[in-house]
Design a protein around this nucleic acid. Structure first.
Lengths: 113, 113
DNA sequence: GGCCGAGTTGCGGTTTTCTTCAAGTCAGAA
DNA sequence: TTCTGACTTGAAGAAAACCGCAACTCGGCC
């Protein structure tokens, strides 16, 4: 709470998303709350590793967890996360088509060879 | 192109944004192309460091650069980046108010109590 | 040509993050 | 109570990211 520059908080948030397992988790949680068990079944990673990644998301406040009997459920803490993922998808699309068009590369390169 | 899973490409993109200097650069570039010189004047970081961060953004295809006389100009490679930053801002807001409002914690208890 | 401002690149040392393994908690079944 | 499935936590080595310094390229100017 002690004056964390805004752009640093933002950077931390994005860095939190910067991991394949964490991205997958968020995508799966878009459809609603899910127990760890289900995530584990779909993600192909060790249980302890998944748990660590979930902890990262939890600490960042992006997901919330609660216990339901023997299971632990996770859910997005805000639906805005879906927007972020969608925006990411769009950029990825834009960037990749640019690449295929390889106009960017040429302009950036100068005249070697 | 050797089958980079989509969610990994996404993760890389978010990780690319996960750095204070890079976030600042993108925010500054939202207003249009700028020479490195101007970025340097506003960001308070060593020239070489800024250059490294710009290289990271360039490699990810998020920004493009071109030379204008003695200056090197940078610009967003797609305006979609602005959406991403905006979505990030929203989530940050939601997460922070959630923290204060502690509603999530309550909901987290499920059917007990 | 020689010089200078504008950027970039390569190289190390330091700091973070990632990943696995082992051990521990918690809730329900036997 | 003991066992078992479902998760989490802690620790430690490996991998990756960061940062400053020095050296280098590229244009424009004298």
């Amino acid at each position: 709470m002690v004056s964390v520059p805004l752009y640093q908080a933002k950077a931390e948030m994005f860095r939190t998303l910067g991991h394949p397992v964490r991205i997958r988790v968020l995508e799966l949680l878009q459809d609603g709350p899910k127990p760890v068990r289900d995530l584990l079944a779909e993600i192909d990673v060790e249980a302890s590793n998944l748990s660590q990644q979930l902890a990262v998301l939890r600490r960042a406040g992006i997901v919330t967890s609660f216990r339901d009997g023997a299971l632990v459920m996770y859910m997005l803490s805000t639906p805005d996360v879906a927007d972020l993922l969608a925006a990411g998808r769009r950029i990825l699309g834009a960037v990749l088509t640019d690449r295929d068009g390889l106009l960017v590369e040429l302009r950036a390169q100068g005249s070697t060879s």
